[in-house]
Write a protein that binds this DNA or RNA. Structure first.
Lengths: 164, 164
DNA sequence: TATTTATGTCAGTATGTCTGACGCAAAATT
DNA sequence: AATTTTGCGTCAGACATACTGACATAAATA
């Protein structure tokens, strides 16, 4: 009865790569990688008097110029009150611009300024080596697998991109 | 000169899967997956009056029965003061036990209690489907790639396990 | 014996997040 | 045209998580 513990599970759950241990290790890896890559950004931003929350917002605004506040909120999954404190810091610091939308004038379109781009690039330069080295060492096929698994967890990344 | 922007980079950086865009998308995926999987744990634990910090500690103690405080600190990468608040909450709640080590009586060996195991299992049951579905849908090869990439970012996961 | 190590604690602070309530302008609906 | 809804900003207060710095204790180690 070596497979008793798989009784209530879908048939191929007994595959080793779907065992609880394998899944939990996959979670550990995810946690540690996210922790470490966020840590890299903190090092750079603390010099500018900003924190990780600012890093995430700045990064995503940089990646989606002209996105709306609602789109940013949807990506970050925080409340607008939380975001606004972060956003105001970034705007006061001159890193982000908030412009009234043209099509729908209720919306605010966000984009990084020149200074914001420089800061975001500095953050990215601190993070990139970690990603790049891992991607390069693992190779294209492994990276495809990485993407496939994470997309399975999160859904299509295109969903998060701004639709201007 | 279509490859001007690759001038200062290692030779195969021009490979599409090593482009800045690909790396940044890899980062986005990592962030969103970590955010979502942590969110699952929060749903369960808030009912017990605990938060995400407790979830991480409980999870890792459960995975490494008898680990020392130092080992847990090394995994979580927080200060002992931060950890102690969390740990005391878990101990007060009856979810974790802290026992003086036998070999080195300065250390405290941590382990989950029966109630702690039940709680940790409840958290895991909330998180597992996300991981399991993604792993299953992606297939073994993709999961191997996922692991390979993340291990490249973080180092060998065995490093985090307790050594009793 | 003197020192170092592993841990726990007290006090104060910073950061990031939350809920709830309110206001406003623009768009959408009736 | 009047009304409702939407997208956003803000004030106020609160909680969770984490930090620094200082100090205490017991056990191991030199």
């Amino acid at each position: 009865m070596s497979d008793a513990k798989f009784g209530g599970m879908p048939p191929d759950t007994r595959a080793l790569y779907l065992s609880d241990e394998a899944l939990k290790q996959g979670l550990d890896l995810l946690f540690v990688a996210a922790r470490d890559v966020a840590g890299k950004s903190a090092e750079v931003l603390s010099a500018a008097g900003l924190g990780r929350a600012h890093a995430r917002a700045l990064h995503f605004i940089g990646r989606n110029p002209g996105l709306s506040v609602a789109e940013l909120l949807d990506f970050l999954k925080i409340t607008k009150q939380s975001l606004n404190r972060v956003l105001n810091d970034l705007i006061l610091g001159g890193f982000v611009e908030r412009k009234t939308g043209t099509k729908d004038r209720r919306t605010r379109r966000l984009q990084v300024t020149q200074a914001g781009k420089i800061l975001a690039d500095a953050v990215w330069n601190a993070q990139r080596p970690m990603l790049a080295a891992a991607f390069r060492a693992a190779g294209q096929d492994a990276v495809n697998g990485y993407r496939k698994v994470l997309i399975g967890m999160t859904g299509d990344p295109e969903r998060w991109r701004s639709k201007p």
